[in-house]
Design a binder for these strands. Structure first.
Lengths: 234, 234
DNA sequence: ACGCCCTTGTGAAAGCACGCACAAAGTGGG
DNA sequence: CCCACTTTGTGCGTGCTTTCACAAGGGCGT
């Protein structure tokens, strides 16, 4: 614990790096569970499916947490990434929509890891209100505002049909939620201060179809080079 | 139908553009349903949540399908984008995992739009094999290879727990599937010729948490600027 | 038939992201 | 105590993305 520069990072982690940190975190937690104490950038990169230089550069944005000639201390790095991502505090999440998707989300064990607490699961359908899902009782959509303020919900998850999504989003925003995760296939309109992320099955399928067509349309001009996967064998 | 250059695009649409085409397509279909025949890049961009210059450049990669001073013919553009994405042919999709997530996917009406056909919904749990979901009977995982070859499945969807994902993926690959959509929170290992896309709830949540923390940690250095959303009012 | 006005399509510039390759830094053996 | 080896952290070149700004093209009113 030498004093170091005391100024590891100076704010401003590239968005592309932020998007990969959760992947590194998961890989590290897997290593930790297997009792591995130290890992090199090469090994961690391989576990996370990225280039090792990219991994090192990503981590360098958080500070100098590695030891040359040795690698990274797994537990320490888990802690640093968790802290950077804001997972050392708990975030309350409200899920709207208790259909199959909402239930799948609610059952998503421990919500990735810890750090997220499902404060409520709401639905507009009287038929499902009152059901128990993942140890939670489904509440009525009309209690959204109460739940958000009582439970200090900071992240809203929208798992309702497309036509209802903007309405739910507006209510979240009105209630003070500034982070929204949207599973409905619509573009949400929100004020600039609100952060929206989208998860969209049909978009992913269509992107796959595009590349599949490439492969089928006679020899493609370039290999698929999927943005995410396409790694070589272990 | 003037002869034009007959060489509208020459192969090689940027990946970033491909990822946005489905969004444009959906926006256009919405316009078409409302009976709108023509749209300007400005209006379409607004509906899709992007910058109009970006939209024009994206569309220019497909060819010159607009009319200066007027805009784009909605139906024609729908057709061109569909064709480019490979949606004018049908793709057979097999979903493995008939839990809440698998069911949610199977029920995802018309699978976005048309273009995708669910050839099978499979599960390893004898308890759910035989259930009817979305007009489909859940089959046993052991029939995966048969289904893939009999139904000419080209896209495999993995909606199983993390520990089972790699195994299912291997079976898909072995059976000849070259496009995989993975919902399990693991990095899949596949040969280079296979295209994998990942949808991961907990990663999205963690990215939101990062930005939320930024907002909370005193005035952020920069506004959130969510990759996806954060548009202004209509 | 002419000219005004609107909107597309695209050069050019700026900003990011990626990956190579290497110097710096730390470990362990002799 | 020194040297050989390992692995990090990063400067730099390259290519992709985004955005601006505007010339070219086409419709419409007169």
């Amino acid at each position: 614990m030498t004093p170091r520069s005391t100024r590891p990072r100076e704010r401003g982690i590239p968005e592309a790096t932020v998007a990969r940190l959760p992947v590194y975190l998961r890989a590290l937690q897997g290593l930790a569970e297997r009792g591995i104490l130290t890992v090199s950038s090469e090994d961690l990169a391989s576990a996370a499916g990225v280039n090792s230089a990219k991994l090192r550069k990503d981590l360098s944005h958080l500070g100098s947490y590695g030891t040359r000639g040795v690698g990274y201390d797994v537990d320490y790095l888990v802690y640093q990434i968790s802290r950077e991502l804001g997972l050392t505090q708990d975030w309350s999440v409200a899920i709207v929509g208790a259909g199959n998707l909402g239930r799948a989300l609610a059952n998503y064990g421990g919500f990735g890891t810890r750090g997220f607490r499902i404060a409520a699961l709401l639905d507009a359908d009287e038929g499902v209100v009152g059901d128990e899902v993942a140890g939670l009782r489904v509440g009525h959509i009309d209690t959204l505002e109460d739940v958000v303020s009582a439970e200090r919900v900071s992240i809203g998850v929208i798992a309702v049909p497309a036509v209802a999504a903007q309405g739910v989003c507006d209510r979240f925003v009105e209630a003070g939620v500034t982070s929204v995760l949207n599973f409905a296939p619509v573009v949400l309109n929100v004020p600039p201060a609100v952060d929206v992320r989208k998860v969209d099955l049909s978009i992913e399928l269509q992107i796959l179809a595009f590349h599949a067509q490439r492969k089928a349309d006679g020899r493609a001009t370039a290999p698929p080079a999927g943005r995410i996967g396409a790694k070589e064998k272990a």
